[in-house]
Design a protein around this nucleic acid. Structure first.
Lengths: 266, 266
DNA sequence: GAGGAAATTCCGCTATACGGAACAAATATG
DNA sequence: CATATTTGTTCCGTATAGCGGAATTTCCTC
């Protein structure tokens, strides 16, 4: 029964239920019994029962007509609680709002989790043409602007871990050479922001800058994402400035004292 | 083992795991083993194992120092997927943005789930004094403006179901008399919006209006919430107008043709 | 450094969750 | 329109996984 690495003290039925939940995505928002049975290597009867249990607690919803399942509202409620737990949130949201108004593009807050960045907040712009992202969205760190910023300001091991994990070429622009990535991170540290142009997703460009807490530690990144047409080379510097400014504002609100740390020569 | 009503074909271990997840709230964002064992009526060892399993899949995070558990990032990711699934979302978010700018207060989208309203979107205002709500927040329908709007435009059975479920007095202003509630809903149908003043939470007032889809069905409510000091009697009519307008805008974007339905005499 | 509380691990027993088969329902096919 | 096929659910016997309680470890507290 050990598919990935079944820790000794974990319950397989529960793990299977959680795997079912995790198998949903923006691109496959509905799932059916046999599909899941296939992909998880379980009997149809087992999946059917697991789904019934998940449904009874509101974690999935069954469309009685098509017999397809989608994620339920319990999941939404829990997500909201998580969001509320991040203190960064309270301080950074107003700043993010302003940034969206100033740039006209969608902005996010992102943190690092393992080898990925995760959007912990999203502030949508009004443009009819929008990039498809969502709260909680998980992207590989090495090929997104927010991820690169967070990596640039994290310890060596984290970076090496990401490299060891493999730099997959998603797009022509994806950085796949370890040394090139290290150089890129150095550059980001120096200039104070990161840009990513079609490194993960076609047609999109993003800019990110680090938010620091009162200890000077980078805890989060602000990032603005948009279609490359609207993120022209001649506009990108302007946007970058605004992103950096927003990040500095948010940092200040978290008690970060720029001058103090400059004095320290950091 | 039948605590609430254990459907024959549901798995108790999975159900217990889900119950653990659901026991987290904004007010109790962390939980400990013995606490959960007590409240769920399970052995500490059982809870410990369930939590270990939940942690291994990122649904909870254990603070190794304090041994306290909080909800994990997997939950956030799933919540984002749910959000993205609501089509109303795409259409209503720009409208909501505008509403927040116009009123200066936090706005939500809400839907009805059983006897509760659930916020499926939240657009925060910039005021330093803010109402504590969150995405996925579940509130009783009969004592919130969004809930009352949604009830006002749903079928008789739903309303009677809510009444049967009990009208608990949360505040002096809470409507607890069934007939009074029915009268209130009638009034809401006539005027096209609902107001709730300290019916559930002290110091808050909210206004809500219905969003309709192309079939004319009320699918969702827009609501603006704020502290009563900022929602003065002499300002409330103005705010209500804006909320109704926003709801109409959103309805139009969903293909609802006001004139067509007026012709029908609806 | 001892005492106590809390979490985890161990262990034996039973209940339970599993897979397979049978059944039911819905969809596709001719 | 009947038949074939796919898909989901229920039933059932068995093996085992998950349960509670005790033992052990860890972590505070005094």
């Amino acid at each position: 029964m050990s598919k990935t690495k079944s820790n000794p003290q974990t319950l397989s039925s529960v793990r299977n239920a959680l795997r079912i939940l995790k198998s949903f995505s923006t691109f496959e928002p509905t799932k059916r019994v046999s599909e899941l049975a296939e992909s998880l290597g379980l009997a149809k009867s087992t999946v059917s029962r697991l789904l019934a249990t998940l449904a009874s607690e509101g974690f999935v919803i069954k469309d009685e007509k098509t017999k397809a399942y989608k994620l339920g509202l319990s999941v939404l409620t829990l997500g909201g609680i998580v969001t509320n737990n991040f203190e960064i949130h309270k301080e950074a949201v107003p700043v993010l709002n302003k940034l969206v108004n100033d740039t006209g593009e969608t902005a996010h807050l992102a943190i690092l989790d393992g080898n990925d960045t995760i959007y912990i907040h999203k502030e949508e712009c009004n443009h009819p043409v929008r990039i498809l992202t969502h709260l909680g969205r998980r992207n590989p760190a090495y090929c997104t602007s927010s991820g690169k910023v967070l990596l640039a300001f994290s310890d060596r091991e984290t970076v090496e871990q990401v490299i060891e994990n493999g730099l997959v070429k998603h797009m022509p622009n994806t950085i796949t050479d370890p040394d090139e990535l290290r150089k890129e991170l150095k550059k980001i540290r120096e200039q104070g922001y990161a840009i990513s142009t079609e490194e993960l997703t076609e047609g999109t460009r993003s800019v990110a800058a680090p938010i620091r807490d009162y200890t000077g530690k980078v805890v989060c990144a602000v990032t603005v994402v948009g279609p490359i047409q609207r993120m022209h080379d001649h506009k990108i510097q302007e946007i970058a400035k605004k992103v950096v400014r927003a990040a500095e504002d948010a940092s200040e609100r978290l008690g970060y004292d720029k001058r103090y740390f400059r004095q320290l020569g950091k």
